[in-house]
């Protein structure tokens, strides 16, 4: 019974399939559980170990680190991100920067950098024209101003990132972006590790307090901020260098050094609709200051339209 070939034959017979039926209650329980389980936005997912996928996955936004879960956010805000369109000329430029002749031609698929593979991008997403742009369906709608070389994308969340060598290299390596701006509605975002953070709250202040109380998370002093007409909290956040815990990875999560990641976070109250989060983040701390210098003028150019 123990020769090599015998073993294989025995196992072939032993594993011969017999009818096996799962109890109905198992699937019924799954149906009950998924009611409480929000789906993750596509950008948060990185099935990069799937050999059949010829292109590295999609929109991943600023790496796993910035992979903020927009858990159930649509309930509060009533919609995800949407296509990016140049702002209409009728919109007065709120700042001198916006005088960089906003485009009036709706983008119908401006294309993406050749190194980047979006996941079913909404119409209009892609490389942005320099100047003033507007989201088409992000709620609340907003306008923003970008220089040359920026890209907009998002399904479920909205992201802005540069067509840059560092993003290209990181995307080729891990399927994530090295630096980027992400935003979306949420009721329980996390900044570095879903398993260790429970930043729940119904206001920006409550969520910020929860974040600051999280073991292993280190934040700068929180300041009050107004972005595009919305008020909230701003802070810089990272993993405490002395933290000795670990972040359990999911089956699909690639290994990453969360201690090297840096995020500037904004939590903004949207009256009667909940909170949106904006992340300006870098996978690698060495990139962060330079990226902040380029990204913050864009964030500061946001103008939210609360009438929709």
């Amino acid at each position: 019974m123990t020769s090599e070939r015998d073993i294989e034959r025995l196992l072939d017979r032993w594993f011969t399939e017999r009818p096996t039926q799962v109890a109905d209650r198992v699937i019924d329980d799954v149906a009950a559980r998924i009611v409480r389980q929000p789906q993750r936005a596509a950008w948060r997912l990185r099935p990069w170990r799937f050999p059949s996928m010829s292109t590295p996955i999609k929109l991943v936004a600023v790496g796993a680190a910035l992979l903020v879960v927009i858990l159930g956010g649509a309930v509060f805000i009533g919609g995800g991100s949407g296509p990016v369109l140049p702002a209409p000329t009728a919109t007065p430029s709120p700042t001198p920067v916006a005088s960089a002749s906003p485009s009036i031609t709706p983008s119908t698929g401006a294309g993406f950098p050749d190194w980047y593979s979006p996941d079913e991008p909404p119409a209009g997403a892609g490389i942005l024209a320099a100047g003033s742009n507007a989201t088409q369906s992000f709620s609340p709608a907003f306008t923003f101003t970008v220089p040359d070389g920026w890209v907009g994308d998002g399904t479920g969340v909205f992201s802005l990132f540069q067509d840059s060598p560092v993003n290209k290299a990181e995307f080729g390596r891990s399927g994530a972006l090295a630096n980027g701006i992400l935003m979306g509605p949420h009721e329980s975002p996390y900044f570095f590790c879903e398993a260790m953070e429970n930043n729940r709250g119904s206001t920006a202040a409550e969520m910020t307090a929860a974040l600051m109380a999280t073991e292993g998370i280190e934040t700068t002093a929180v300041v009050d901020v107004t972005i595009g007409g919305l008020t909230g909290k701003q802070f810089d956040v990272r993993i405490d260098p002395d933290w000795t815990g670990s972040c359990p990875a999911g089956p699909d999560d690639p290994p990453r050094d969360i201690k090297d990641e840096r995020v500037r976070g904004f939590l903004l109250d949207v009256p009667d609709r909940g909170v949106i989060v904006i992340f300006v983040g870098s996978l690698h701390s060495a990139d962060h200051e330079a990226f902040l210098a380029e990204a913050m003028p864009i964030v500061e150019s946001f103008q939210f339209d609360l009438s929709n």
Binding site: V22, V26, I27, D29, V30, R33, I34, Q37, P38, Q39, R40, A41, A42, R44, L45, R46, P47, S52, M53, I57, K58, D119, T155, G156, G250, P251, D252
Partner: peptide, 17 residues
């Protein structure tokens, strides 16, 4: 099986094909 199916639901948007 239940855990796998709930995770599948959670991450289904990442399935491109």
């Amino acid at each position: 099986l239940q855990d796998a199916l709930v995770i599948a639901w959670r991450d289904l948007r990442g399935l491109r094909d």
